[in-house]
């Protein structure tokens, strides 16, 4: 396992990593504020030790799993992925993490399960952004089971070999590189296997603007802006926009998941 992820980025010799500063000072994490620099300023308030994830729903072994327990059974590897935000900026991030499939296999997915729901920590005393009802808190996201089991889908615990900083979703977050960034939910406290399409925060707040799938797609615009191009963070004031790639450049690996689906309807 993991070979596919490595192969996916090995093809792109032009993938230049964003710097630690770029990755950790320009963040969307609305629980800490809506400005890009709010997370780096406020996220230190979040207590990340001890940490546990409640895994429930249609699984063989439901329960509260401590982070140490989860990490003791997986192998951490590096994955260099493009990150494409729905706001049309992007980065290249060297994540450290493990395949979500490994965790799901360990807890045992029941036969009828078709989706995976995720939830972010909801601690108003540690997350000042929760005072403002930007979204219906807590932040929630979801994947189809086959998306969750895909070898490109990882749970990240580090960046550049360092523990993942709070503003980037410490201590453990999802990374789904072919979807807009908001699908890659941060600071996960709960994972639920279900047979129904789960609640997804942005999708629920603006269904016209944010689909459940939210696959990166240069041909389907956000109603308020074009998704055809993106700004790679770190290029400075005079950086040229670059074309956005279908499925964020992971078309070869993931297009088969959506065969026969009208991606303009299921955006």
């Amino acid at each position: 396992s993991g070979m596919m992820g490595r192969a996916a980025h090995a093809q792109d010799n032009d993938l230049q990593l964003n710097s630690w500063e770029e990755i950790t000072t320009y963040n969307n994490y609305y629980e800490f504020g809506t400005r890009k620099n709010d997370p780096v300023e406020n996220a230190h308030m979040l207590t990340t030790q001890p940490w546990s994830i409640e895994i429930d729903g249609m699984v063989e072994n439901p329960g509260t799993y401590s982070l140490e327990d989860i990490l003791s059974e997986v192998e951490i590897e590096e994955r260099i992925y493009r990150l494409r935000c729905v706001e049309a900026w992007s980065m290249v991030v060297p994540w450290n993490g493990f395949e979500l499939a490994d965790l799901l296999t360990r807890v045992g997915v029941q036969d009828g399960a078709r989706y995976v729901a995720f939830q972010t920590a909801n601690r108003p005393e540690e997350m000042p952004g929760l005072r403002v009802p930007v979204l219906d808190w807590p932040y929630r996201e979801g994947l189809r089971l086959d998306e969750a089991m895909h070898p490109l889908t990882i749970m990240a615990t580090g960046i550049y070999g360092e523990p993942i900083p709070n503003q980037n979703g410490a201590p453990i977050r999802l990374v789904v590189p072919w979807k807009y960034g908001f699908k890659s939910i941060k600071s996960i406290v709960r994972i639920t296997l279900t047979d129904e399409q789960p609640y997804a925060s942005w999708n629920a707040s603006q269904p016209r603007e944010y689909g459940f799938y939210s696959n990166v797609n240069p041909n389907v615009d956000h109603p308020r802006w074009s998704q055809a191009t993106e700004r790679r963070v770190g290029g400075g004031l005079f950086a040229r926009r670059i074309p956005t790639l279908m499925f964020n450049g992971y078309e070869e690996e993931v297009a088969s998941l959506y065969e026969g689906m009208d991606l303009a309807e299921y955006f």
């Binding site: 770029e22 000072t25 320009y26 890009k36 900026w89 700004r231 963070v233 400075g236 004031l237």
Partner: peptide, 15 residues
């Protein structure tokens, strides 16, 4: 500031 990194790592949006 934007041209010299003083407005953060994404100066176009910031400016």
């Amino acid at each position: 500031l934007a041209a010299t990194g003083g407005l953060g790592v994404e100066p176009i949006e910031a400016l």
